[in-house]
């Protein structure tokens, strides 16, 4: 690329853990805290948005532009608000591994309806 690549076009989020009750966990849904979102009303903007958990694995497998990289992505989608404090629930194509808890997640700006 000759041109400078773009800056950040996603919001920062953090994986809190699975959806859960006191003793059970439901790993098919993940709770995510999005930076700057502090109440339930403002989660409205983010419902339906795509989420990417980007991580580095041991083996370079996925290729980006012909080069193999260790970077991998698990894609997901924000499905619902969770509680009144601006946390949201997301579903991922593959359930997130527990090692992702506390890790950064990218909340994309699309699909957009602005």
């Amino acid at each position: 690329m000759s041109q400078k690549s773009s800056g950040r076009l996603y919001c920062k989020g953090v994986v809190l853990g699975y959806k859960r009750s006191l003793r059970n966990q439901y790993p098919n849904q993940t709770r995510i805290k999005i930076q700057g979102v502090e109440d339930r009303v403002s989660t409205n903007f983010y419902i339906g948005k795509r989420v990417a958990y980007v991580y580095r694995a041991k083996k370079p497998i996925k290729s980006i532009g012909g080069k193999k990289t260790k970077v991998r992505v698990i894609w997901g989608k924000i499905i619902a608000p969770h509680g009144n404090r601006g946390v949201v629930r997301a579903k991922f194509r593959n359930n997130l591994p527990p090692s992702s808890f506390g890790k950064r997640v990218r909340v994309m700006l699309y699909p957009s309806n602005v």
Binding site: S6, G7, R8, L9, Y10, C11, Q35, G36, V37, S42, N44, F45, Y46, L109
Partner: peptide, 11 residues
């Protein structure tokens, strides 16, 4: 170009 920087929240 448009990009988000620290403290900017699209909502």
């Amino acid at each position: 170009r448009f990009s988000l920087s620290y403290g900017q929240f699209p909502h």
